[in-house]
Simulated scan of single mutants.
Amino acid sequence: MANVRGRGKVGDVVMIDLGNESFGYGRVLLEPTMAFYDLRSREMVAAREVVKAPVLFTIWVLNKAIKSEKWEVIGNLPLEDHLKAEPKFFKQDMLSKKFFIYDDVKNIPATREDCIGLERASVWEANHVEDRLRDHFDDVPNKWVESMKLPEA
C-alpha cells in the first residue's frame, strides 16, 4: 500500500468515537480524500465488515484527523475500484458566482445543475467530520453541511 503523508496508509479503516458510546467508520483514500460509511456501532466492527456498508460521503480531510485520539486505525484493506477514482467536487467563485467542478487538478466551468449531488470543495477537520456523522445518525441537519450547500437557483 502507498504511504499517506502523516496519516497512515491508503486503505486504512478507521473507527471514530462519536461519543454516547457509539462509533462511526471511515477509510483513507488517496490524499487528502477519505470515505465515510453509513454504519454506526456500539462496539468495534471488523474492518472487513465495515467496508461492506454503503459509503455515506467522500470528502477531503486534514491529514492530522487520523491522528486524533478519537480516530483509531482498525485494519487495512485494498481499495475497491469505485474508491480508487478521484471524486469530483464543486466550487463557486464568490465574486462572479460562477460554478466549477474540481476534477483532479483542474476547475471545469459548470452550471449549477452540473453541481447537484456533489460535495463543495473543502477540507474538513476531524471534529467537523465527527459532528457530521453524529448528526446523520441522529437524523438532524448538520450545520457544516448546511453552510456549504449548493445555493438555491
Rank of each mutant, 00 (worst) to 15 (best):
Y102P: 00
D93Q: 11
K98R: 15
T111L: 06
T111H: 12
E113N: 07
F90I: 04
E125I: 00
W124G: 00
F90M: 03
S122F: 14
L95N: 13
D104P: 00
I101S: 09
M94T: 13
H82T: 05
E125M: 01
R112A: 11
D103K: 15
Y102T: 03
S122K: 10
L118G: 10
C115D: 04
W124V: 01
D104H: 13
V123P: 01
R120H: 12
A110W: 14
R120V: 07
A85E: 15
R112G: 05
C115P: 06
A85S: 14
V123A: 02
D114C: 07
H82Y: 12
S96T: 15
K91P: 01
I108A: 06
R120M: 10
C115G: 08
P78W: 00
S96F: 04
Y102K: 10
D104A: 06
K84G: 04
K84M: 09
E113C: 00
I116H: 03
A126I: 03
E119K: 03
I108C: 06
A121I: 08
E125G: 00
E125C: 00
T111M: 06
M94Q: 13
K84Q: 10
Y102N: 08
D114T: 12
I108F: 07
I116G: 00
D93K: 14
I116Q: 08
K88F: 14
L83A: 13
K97H: 13
L83M: 15
R112K: 13
K98T: 13
W124I: 00
L95C: 09
A126R: 02
F99P: 09
I108H: 12
Q92S: 02
F100A: 10
K84R: 14
H82I: 03
K98N: 15
K106D: 12
K98W: 11
D93S: 12
D114P: 08
E113H: 03
L118N: 06
A110F: 15
L79H: 03
M94L: 11
S122N: 09
S96Y: 07
G117S: 04
I108Y: 10
F90K: 01
R120P: 03
L77Y: 01
Q92I: 05
K88P: 09
V105L: 03
E119H: 05
E113A: 07
R112C: 08
A85I: 14
P87T: 04
L95T: 14
I116R: 08
V123M: 06
W124Y: 03
S122E: 06
C115Y: 11
L118C: 06
D103C: 15
L83P: 07
E119P: 01
P78R: 01
K98S: 14
K88H: 15
D81K: 13
K84H: 04
T111A: 09
K84I: 05
Q92V: 05
F90R: 02
T111D: 09
L79I: 00
D93I: 10
L83Y: 13
A110I: 12
P87V: 03
F99R: 09
W124Q: 01
M94H: 12
L118Q: 04
I116D: 02
A85H: 14
D93E: 11
W124P: 00
L77A: 01
A110N: 13
S122M: 06
K91G: 03
I101R: 06
F99S: 08
C115I: 07
A110H: 12
D93H: 15
T111I: 09
N107S: 10
A121R: 11
